[in-house]
Amino acid sequence: MTSFQVPGWGYVLMAVGFAAFIALLIAYIVVNRGFKRPVFASPYVLWIIVFTVIPCLLVAYFSFTDPAGNFTLDNFKSFWDANYNTRKGIDPALLQQYQDMGLSLDDLGLGRNPINIDTLVFSLWMAFLCTAICLLLGYPAAHIMADREFRLGPTLVVLFVVPMWMNFLLRTIALMSIMEDGGLINTVLNWLGFGPAKLLNTTAAVQVGMVYNFLPFMVFPIYNVLNKMDYQLSEAAMDLGCNKWKIFYKVTLPLSIPGVVSGITMVFMPAVTTFYISRLLGGGKVQLFGDLIEAKFLSTSLNEWNVGSALSLVMMVLILLSLGLLQKADPKGEGGGII
């Protein structure tokens, strides 16, 4: 900030665009002698176009171009094969020479190395596991709180809602600090005589971190649906001779499906896209899809924005698919997804 810098053309464009917008607005008002209320939304329309629509299109644009701006599918090819770009950048004559010497691509470290797809599969698996654990832990909790005879229920739900809005980074750090070598868990383990255990920097630690962060997102929608459910239905089932378990299987569970689906999507989506949970609790040893994207964009040595965009596009498609699934299973939004 000390020396004067020529602003990028983005700033110029923003200034010109803003001036043009104001001019158009004034012209419109003058021509129409006044304006209707929808005009109040025009600044936001402009804002959405510049900061939501265009950026999304840019992700698509960068995914299908090389750094020079030419159309290419290489970014997706390197998705299947991590060394694709390196191999492509090598003089074919030189490569032939090496191969004539009897060296294979693997020997040169250029063999097909499908790290991106591996990471995606691993990430999906971790997210799936996290969703399953959250469902197993969360459903009973929601069910208990939604019980009409449990007076404390509605109060306790607030304790599940608050973490949903809390900074995930801070919560992850809190978890990290009790899992550290000299942290609370290890102190207790020591005291019980199980000796210190290496908790951090493992896949399990990342999984615990994901469940810890996203569990409330499973509990809340399920609670919402169960709470709104007509309790007379289960009373009717009881009158008709169902026992407790049968009521659960035949009445409660089917009626709570919208909440369950809502919970599944709300846990699965952030679980697929997280990157700092794995970085902090996995210590760089556990790499998820989000870490991969982050590295492509922010690691100083790489700056592979094009490949990173392709990865983000894949992630966006995944998200859209799961949102579509949610829409289909819970069309009326009964789960009350986002508060």
Binding site: P55, L58, V59, V272, T273, I293, G308, S312, M315, M316
Partner: peptide
């Protein structure tokens, strides 16, 4: 997801 919002704005 936040990461996609962040990246798309970064690209802008």
């Amino acid at each position: 997801p936040d990461i996609v919002t962040g990246i798309s704005l970064m690209l802008l």
